[in-house]
Design a protein around this nucleic acid. Structure first.
Lengths: 208, 208
DNA sequence: AATTACAGAGAACAGTTGTTAACTGGATGA
DNA sequence: TCATCCAGTTAACAACTGTTCTCTGTAATT
């Protein structure tokens, strides 16, 4: 089942990706609900009507961006949470992984943080669904840990979602500190690590 | 120093408030960066140009909304955190207070959640400043607690900000559950309470 | 009673927006 | 080779945007 994707489809996917990239760029200084279809096509250098060959609407493009930003992140999360080494080290690695991801894909992170509570319903729902998946996956990994014996399913999911939210908060802080001096970035790093540690301590004493 | 506010100024403040209210209403299904000046004046029933008598721009109106939504909340937070009774009861009261506030001012809460990471810089900064104030105030109250002896200033502020973020997350969850059946709302309530309790447990064992 | 200040109205401006329809030209499959 | 498909173009549409300038009526001041 090889699909070598003829010249036709290849070019189509190329402009589709160009539209997504241009939109993501424009969204650094505005929200999705104010992003214009013509604005996007103009940035790509293509006729406004060409937009409809790829997306029904801006909201549709938005949900595609959600998939692009979060879809490929699931394996990353799983391995990070599951890898079992020293507790303190694990937290440090998680924080560094978040920092690295924000460095590599700042626009994607900004988009998710911005549109999670943004003005476009379908996009909010797409993000909510993805984050719920993250929650389930983190829960599954936590369940394997020996610290989790005696925990109810509900409590495991509660903790998993707490971790997921905390990751997003941390990512957002790193984003704000992107152009800040190194000392500021270090400070954010330390605060994030301590918050994560405090939650983990709460986890260890949950059943007392 | 009495200022009985002549007829003139009284009427002006009235339309100003009408503009704020109309904007807040329109923002339930879009973001600030897509809110139009004419849209707001039309909703109030006033000429577009009248807008400039009250605000320089939509961003300016946005920062006024931030003040309206968060400015009067400081005393509420202080007393809630400071009141010293049974630990479990304190958390329950805090959650109920958040739920009540979301019920009473859903549009304000939505506005803050949406524009905290939204596309309008001055508004983001206004919200960030207010939340930083909340963090400081919570820290001040936490410092008075006997559980806080031996804590560094940095760690106290770290914890305070963790609480503040958690309050916002909780408020946002209540908002999503506003039109949901009572059982769903109860579920949200219980999850929020447990997350808050887990953080508090982490706090108690922080110095181990 | 006469003058000033000023909230709001009205009209006009150059640009912008989403969406429609009909069209073009090169890749695709028979 | 020829007919078909379809990504992208062109042109046009009514509706909308923020902002300027000028004007009006009435409250506030003298």
């Amino acid at each position: 089942m090889s699909h070598t994707l003829g010249l036709r489809q290849a070019q189509k996917q190329k402009t589709r990706q160009a539209l997504l990239d241009a939109a993501l760029g424009l969204l650094e200084e505005q929200s999705l609900s104010s992003l214009g279809l013509r604005e996007v096509t103009r940035a790509v250098g293509v006729a406004p009507t060409a937009f409809y060959r790829h997306f029904r609407s801006i909201a549709d493009l938005g949900t595609a961006l959600v998939e692009e930003a979060l879809g490929s992140l699931h394996p990353m999360i799983r391995t990070t949470v599951s890898t079992a080494d020293d507790h303190g080290q694990r937290i440090k690695r998680a924080i560094e992984l978040i920092a690295g991801h924000v460095d590599a894909y700042p626009a994607h992170v900004r988009f998710i943080a911005r549109e999670r509570h943004g003005g476009v319903q379908p996009v909010r729902e797409a993000i909510r669904d993805q984050l719920a998946r993250f929650g389930q996956e983190v829960k599954d990994e936590l369940a394997k840990d020996r610290v989790s014996v005696g925990w109810s399913e509900d409590d495991l999911l509660m903790l998993a979602n707490l971790y997921v939210d905390q990751m997003l908060i941390t990512a957002s802080l790193f984003l704000e500190a992107l152009d800040a001096p190194a000392e500021e970035r270090d400070r954010v790093c330390q605060v994030a690590e301590r918050q994560m540690r405090l939650i983990s301590i709460g986890r260890e004493h949950w059943l007392d």
